[in-house]
Simulated assay, not measured.
Amino acid sequence: MARIHYSDPSKASDRTREILDKNRHANIFRMMAHSPSYFEQYCRLGGAIRHKGELDPIVRELAITRTGILCEAPYEIVAHKRIGKNVGVTDEQNEALANWQAATCFDETQRAALAFTDEIVRLKKPTDATFKAIAPRLTPAALVELQLSVGFYIMTSKFLETFEIDLQPVTEVVG
């Protein structure tokens, strides 16, 4: 059960209700809607990360799901395994993310991106070796997008866990 109550859409502004409707009133968004201005900007950046960049969506979703795993955020993991599947992440890849280093289902770019993700989450920054392994595989824009995606979903995972956001049925989860 969430640590504080979810916002009441009937008391929200038209704009907040519009954003909640667009996002199917998912629990994460109902919690975030307590701060309408932050909520709107969060959704704007999240939309850019998921729909406007040049980073390969499979690499993006592998990195986001791995971030959820490392941050121990089940809501994020469930949501982004589903989203990943919709953009081409295989069931084998989703299942292997917890121990990706031992898996053979990831290509070299995906492996470099996962190592980069692990170090962003676990260290203050990626090591030079890890950075040098991913940088030639992505454009500068895609590399920036990968880092911002991981950072954004660290924040999202911590938000989910701080407020103990309730999981929703798989058909309803959005994140």
Rank of each mutant, 00 (worst) to 15 (best):
129 A>W: 11
148 L>F: 07
49 I>H: 03
49 I>R: 03
92 E>F: 14
58 I>F: 04
77 I>G: 00
64 I>F: 03
125 K>D: 12
119 E>R: 05
85 K>I: 14
24 R>K: 11
36 P>W: 11
32 M>W: 14
38 Y>F: 14
81 K>V: 05
77 I>M: 01
77 I>P: 00
35 S>Q: 13
89 V>F: 06
124 K>D: 15
20 L>V: 06
46 G>N: 11
133 A>V: 01
145 E>T: 07
117 T>K: 09
25 H>Y: 15
62 L>G: 04
120 I>C: 14
159 F>S: 07
33 A>C: 11
31 M>Y: 03
78 V>P: 01
83 I>R: 07
109 T>V: 00
99 N>V: 10
147 Q>G: 15
6 Y>P: 05
90 T>P: 09
138 L>K: 02
158 K>P: 03
4 I>K: 08
85 K>L: 15
164 E>Q: 15
102 A>G: 04
138 L>E: 03
155 M>H: 05
112 A>M: 06
159 F>R: 07
167 L>T: 00
64 I>D: 02
154 I>V: 15
43 C>E: 10
157 S>L: 01
130 T>M: 11
39 F>P: 09
142 A>C: 11
70 L>Y: 05
10 S>V: 09
109 T>I: 01
134 I>T: 06
147 Q>F: 13
107 D>V: 06
120 I>V: 14
28 I>W: 06
163 F>I: 04
102 A>W: 03
109 T>F: 00
107 D>H: 07
98 A>R: 13
91 D>A: 15
175 G>E: 08
141 A>D: 06
48 A>R: 02
115 A>W: 02
114 L>D: 05
17 R>M: 04
40 E>R: 15
55 L>V: 08
27 N>P: 03
7 S>R: 08
158 K>N: 12
29 F>I: 02
141 A>I: 08
124 K>N: 15
53 G>V: 12
110 Q>L: 04
45 L>T: 09
37 S>N: 14
46 G>T: 05
86 N>M: 12
113 A>R: 00
153 Y>M: 13
28 I>L: 11
38 Y>E: 11
86 N>Q: 13
159 F>D: 13
44 R>A: 05
142 A>H: 11
71 C>D: 06
82 R>I: 05
125 K>T: 13
60 R>L: 08
40 E>P: 14
66 R>N: 01
154 I>T: 10
126 P>D: 09
2 A>G: 08
1 M>D: 10
109 T>P: 00
142 A>P: 13
14 D>N: 09
155 M>A: 10
7 S>I: 12
22 K>P: 11
13 S>N: 06
